[in-house]
């Protein structure tokens, strides 16, 4: 019999506030690893901020902003082993940058150019999924398959709070638990599904409580604390690799940017809360933590920023220099035998 585990309700935190709340640390993370996390966050932040500018300049299409979600993305992605697979939603469009993908590739995706398609096997990153939660079963299927083949690879799947209302989420989560698939279900709970607030999304007090219904552990973690996310993901992966199956991680944050560039959130969000959250945003929190530890200097911070900006600059130049795609590409991989209706006209 599977044991039904109550989810943890306390929100896990490692980073203090430099005042009354003391800083903690994560075992096994040395200074170099701490700085890797920092650079990853700076790269994501820079990608995101530049993309919003590029959009306003007509250089990329409608873009899903992830400002303030960098701690969730970097903290979880860097906890993975190289062999592990990532199943991103549109909010994690640039997660490939943390595995050596170039900004040119991701920018091309947002430009609607085929150069934005990558070989999932090359990066162990599945395609960006725009429909909500449909990739949860994909991740579970991959992970179950790896287990059946006796491999040690795990899967990490990202989705938002709104995805937990979807049938595909339920099927994926239930199947993962039943089959003990080595997968981490990482819910980026930023309180909004476009303009639908969490309170209109669920009657559950905590999303993590849903895990108990599937018979898997559920943990809640401060999504603005990169180290807490790293630690929670690491524990979930260790559990998965040991054959104990999936974990549901609810990373709590508040989206203080538009859903996408076509959204006007001032129509629905809480402006005062947005201001508070922006002051306490994740990169600044981690920056201050590293300086309190004496690990980060002005010079290192500036280098990280300059390097990220340089990569974006060459990335957009390279993406814009690509020749326009051949429209026939649309049909290239759609049919083995194109139906006659496609040939008409």
């Amino acid at each position: 019999m599977a044991q039904v585990l109550p989810a943890e309700h306390d929100v896990r935190r490692i980073i203090g506030d430099g005042d009354g709340v003391a800083d903690g640390e994560v075992e096994g993370l040395d200074d170099a690893a701490l700085l890797d996390l920092y650079r990853a966050m700076v790269l994501l932040r820079t990608y995101d901020e530049r993309s919003v500018v590029y959009h306003s300049q007509g250089r990329v299409g409608t873009y899903a902003i992830f400002w303030g979600h960098e701690a969730i993305q970097a903290g979880s992605a860097l906890a993975l082993a190289d062999e592990d697979w990532i199943f991103p939603s549109y909010r994690e469009s640039a997660i490939g940058l943390l595995r050596g993908m170039t900004p040119e590739t991701v920018l091309s995706w947002w430009r609607g150019h085929p150069a934005g398609w990558w070989n999932p096997r090359e990066f162990r990153i599945a395609s960006i999924t725009v429909p909500i939660a449909t990739h949860v079963p994909h991740a579970v299927g991959y992970a179950w398959g790896a287990r059946l083949k006796g491999e040690s690879a795990c899967a990490l799947v990202y989705f938002g709070d709104g995805a937990t209302s979807e049938g595909a989420f339920h099927e994926g989560a239930n199947f993962a638990a039943v089959m003990r698939a080595p997968v981490v279900l990482l819910c980026n709970n930023n309180q909004w599904a476009i303009s639908t607030p969490l309170s209109a999304q669920t009657r559950a007090e905590f999303l993590a409580d849903k895990a108990a219904g599937y018979g898997m552990p559920g943990v809640r973690v401060d999504g603005g604390d990169v180290l807490a996310v790293y630690q929670a993901t690491s524990e979930a992966l260790a559990r998965a690799r040991a054959g104990h199956g999936p974990t549901f991680v609810e990373a709590l944050t508040y989206r203080c940017a538009p859903h996408v560039t076509a959204d006007d959130p001032t129509a629905y969000w809480d402006a005062q809360r947005v201001e508070r959250e922006r002051e306490n945003e994740c990169l600044g929190r981690y920056d201050r933590y590293l300086r309190r530890l004496g690990v980060l200097s002005d010079e290192l911070a500036e280098d990280a920023r300059d390097d990220a900006l340089e990569r974006m600059k060459s990335g957009i130049a390279a993406a814009e220099a690509l020749p326009p795609p051949d429209p026939e590409v649309v049909f290239a991989s759609a049919y083995v035998d194109p139906p006659p209706t496609l040939r008409e006209g």
């Binding site: 300049q57 007509g58 250089r59 299409g61 409608t62 996408v260 560039t261 076509a262």
Partner: peptide, 10 residues
Amino acid sequence: EFRLPDLGEG
């Protein structure tokens, strides 16, 4: 030459 971009969606 800078052209007016689509600043929303459509």
